[in-house]
Design a protein around this nucleic acid. Sequence first.
RNA 1: GGGCCGUUAGCUCAACCAGGCAGAGCAACUGACUCUUAAUCAGUAGGUUGAAGGUUCGAUUCCUUCACGGCUCACCA
Length: 509
Amino acid sequence: MTPAGPRSSRAMDREEQGRRRKLKEIEELGFRPWPNRFATTHAVASVLSQFDGASAEALESMPETDRTVRVGGRVTALRSFGRAAFLQLLDGGTAIQVHIRKDILPRPQFLATRRLDLGDWIGIEGSLFRTRTDELTIKATSFTFLAKAFLPLPEKWHGLSDRDTRYRKRYLDLLSNPATREVFRRRAAIVTSMRRSLDDAGFLEVETPMLQPLATGAAARPFSTHHRALGIELFLRVAPELYLKRLVVGGFPRVYEINRNFRNEGLSTRHNPEFTMLECYRAFSDCGDMMELTEAILRAAAATVLGGEAADFDGARIAFHEPFVRRSLIEITGEALASRGILLEPAALRRRAPLVEAHRALDLVPPPAATAGKLLLGLFEALVERTLIQPTFVTGYPVEVSPLSKADPDDPALTERFELFAGGLEIANGFSELNDPDEQAARFGEQMARRQAGDEHAMDWDYIEALRHGLPPTGGVGVGIDRVAMLFTGSKAIRDVILFPHLRPRESR
RNA sequence: GGGCCGUUAGCUCAACCAGGCAGAGCAACUGACUCUUAAUCAGUAGGUUGAAGGUUCGAUUCCUUCACGGCUCACCA
């Protein structure tokens, strides 16, 4: 009779059948089992904000109508006595206590409250008062049944703690763990703050294709799919970058997009196959301007979410309100090598042989056929990245690992590019955008020549054509929203800041 | 892919080291109770101990393999 799930057990069947029986009994008392609407006067949170300051006496002296509210919510606790009960109503993450009395509620309504289970949705009208323990409470004058929960809530004291279940059944995590609700409120506040910063600075929010004929803008393995009507293969984007720059060509000098990118690579505590990135582009700006913009956006988000306090992350206090440190990639990597007894002149940090030698000395395997720039970046990632706890801009990336960045006019082997690190995580990546179409075509060509798997790096001739129409000097930056959310919520795992992270599908749970 | 840890009632966990009737709290069910808040009190029910195999008189416990998960390392612009 019940849709028994694959996980159903005898105990669960009994539980669910008991709840179905009680729904029937509530129906027999004259209630509609699944009503369509309940008109509330307040959210529970607004009841609290409006009345939490009122003392017992103040409430008492108010006219009844001034302290009468109608609220809806989920029953999360139920303490029942003979002719009275207290229950806790959770609405939008905020709870309020409701007092039920047999001598106040109409008889069928009182009887229906005796048939409630934890998890049920109900509506209450009543007047506010304070209990002997001074808790703001609604004395119910009217009870409405709104919806039945056939399945029980997670354990009330420990909440839901199994990580796997928390990710797979996030709704249970959210309704039983206030800390989880706070993480996702903060995440939303971060995004809202970033939007406000950019909107206020005259940026236009746009949406560019997630289904792309070529997966461009980053060197990552894409997901592929098929368009039936067009009969073509499409890729889920790995970055929106080249489309956003087309918009600058088209005359939108300030654009940004906040949305998902997809990379078909390994999962880790720092990587989810789909992740959210803010990318923004500003005409007439360079790498240095974008560092300032990035710092300002993050500072504003930190002020909103953390109130100007440092972020607690992995045992560190990360000060987004202080000026961000700036270091050159070559210098900081050279220092890290020196501290391990590997002394290399700055010039040697640009040549393959000494860098390969450094890898060997550190028991690292140098990637085959890697360029000097790639080797240097490998050493940086192995030795330095995790140590950058306070917000740090690293600048001066080799041209071979930065195919979309403009070269530094004073040092053509390097580009005007930065990456921002904090808490040991890469947070942002920005640069002066390469706008010379011939140079860009040549860089793409080098990339393709260097990769065996040519399909990963097709030449985007359409983008080159856009550049041939003229891209003004432009600065761009991408900010990893998930990583920022990790830092601002103290979450060590990216899965903790993604509502429905990707997990291996499960047959029987 | 490697290492470590884990999988026992609906949930959170004991029992395992040193093999001997599988337990507690919460949730559920019955009853009492008109200011409780992890309500309380009395009672009831609830188990293929992740799966398969092995050792043993006897396995939740020891061994092997597998599945799933966590942490971590590696891989991964």
